[in-house]
């Protein structure tokens, strides 16, 4: 029997139908590690959204008397309770005890609360940088690949050009420039608006832009390559033969097919975005204090590494665990979706 006949037979038997997407989801669910990664990521998102609920203290509250507390150490803040009476599971407000689950930093701020609030920074970087690079890369790559010819050639030469220069140091300088201008104030309405926006993003606006700007290049190349291969596909020619215009072809046929691989690439790129934010914050270019970023926390704790390693280790563990979860999830998504979304079974 030919394979054709077999497929037809199977087809007539099975009642329900699955899209390639559903197929891939099923495959993904079978990968336990990847599912674990995804659950952890979802959990962290939950923690970030409800950070005030999960954090025992105000992340910015300084308490110089209780600085550099060791993890699980209880401290007396009202002086009427002895420190030994307090345990880490005591509800601080009720008992007048305070326990720093992960210790406190040099300014006496509760490290645990800061780590919890730090999830917001890392996740918003993951979200913002991937959306920025996805949108720019998708639009740029689609236009370039679809237009073809000299337009494509010129647009890709620009990408090559940007690939050929060390963007990171230049972007660091741009961040410095932006910070300096915003400290000084400006009478240009655009700059003022940007500064406002930056403040509302906890000083991270430029880091968002910087990371997005560093990473749209790869996405644009990927999108262009995909568009080039899909626009020659016969289903696109079929649509044209039916009288479809450019808009119909782009939005109905190209983007739905290009988006999948791009989303997978983004999910694999997220760990890089998180690292880059941490690195920029570590060298003092990220968040403005007292907003807690894990990179900035490592920087703050670093000088006291010898006596208080926990000030570095806890944010480090948080950073690595979240990244690990994203890596497991991204690998699983790639394995499950990459082949399936290319239209073969």
């Amino acid at each position: 029997m030919t394979t054709d006949k077999k497929i037809e037979k199977k087809n007539n038997r099975i009642g329900e139908s699955r899209s390639p997407l559903q197929d891939a989801m099923r495959e993904f669910r079978r990968n336990k590690i990847a599912v674990g990664g995804m659950i952890f990521v979802i959990f962290v998102i939950f923690v970030a959204v409800f950070a005030p609920v999960f954090s025992p203290y105000d992340f910015a509250q300084q308490n110089l008397r209780n600085n550099r507390a060791k993890p699980m150490e209880g401290y007396d803040i009202t002086e009427s309770y002895a420190a030994e009476k307090c345990h880490w599971y005591d509800t601080p407000m009720e008992w007048g005890c305070t326990t720093f689950i992960a210790g406190s930093d040099a300014l006496g701020r509760d490290l645990w609360s800061r780590i919890i609030y730090g999830t917001r920074i890392s996740l918003s970087i993951a979200l913002a940088a991937s959306s920025v690079s996805l949108v720019i890369g998708l639009i740029y790559g689609t236009v370039s690949g679809y237009a073809g010819g000299n337009v494509d050639n010129l647009m890709m030469r620009l990408v090559d050009f940007l690939y050929g220069i060390p963007l990171l140091p230049i972007i660091i300088l741009m961040t410095v420039y932006f910070n300096a201008v915003s400290r000084q104030g400006s009478d240009s309405p655009i700059v003022t608006a940007l500064i406002k926006l930056d403040n509302s993003a906890g000083g991270l606006l430029f880091v968002f832009i910087a990371i997005g700007a560093l990473n749209w290049l790869g996405m644009a190349r990927l999108a262009r390559g995909q568009v080039l291969s899909y626009k020659e596909k016969e289903f696109v020619e079929a649509a044209r033969a039916l009288g479809a215009g450019n808009g119909h072809v782009i939005f109905k046929h190209l983007i739905p097919n290009v988006l999948g691989p791009l989303l997978i690439a983004e999910s694999m790129a997220i760990p890089g975005y998180i690292f880059l934010e941490a690195a920029l914050s570590f060298i003092g270019l990220g968040v403005s204090p007292p907003t807690p970023s894990w990179g900035a926390m490592i920087n703050e704790g670093y000088s006291g590494l010898r006596s208080n390693p926990h000030l570095v280790m806890f944010p480090g563990i948080a950073l690595s665990t979240l990244t690990l979860a994203f890596n497991f999830m991204g690998d699983g998504l790639r394995d499950a979706f990459d082949t399936r979304l290319r239209g073969r079974n």
Binding site: A241, L242, H253, P256, N257, R342
Partner: peptide, 15 residues
């Protein structure tokens, strides 16, 4: 005027 293509895989949008 219409057309039917050779490759039954490439001629239908998988999505």
């Amino acid at each position: 005027i219409q057309i039917i293509f050779q490759d039954p895989y490439a001629s239908l949008n998988p999505r």
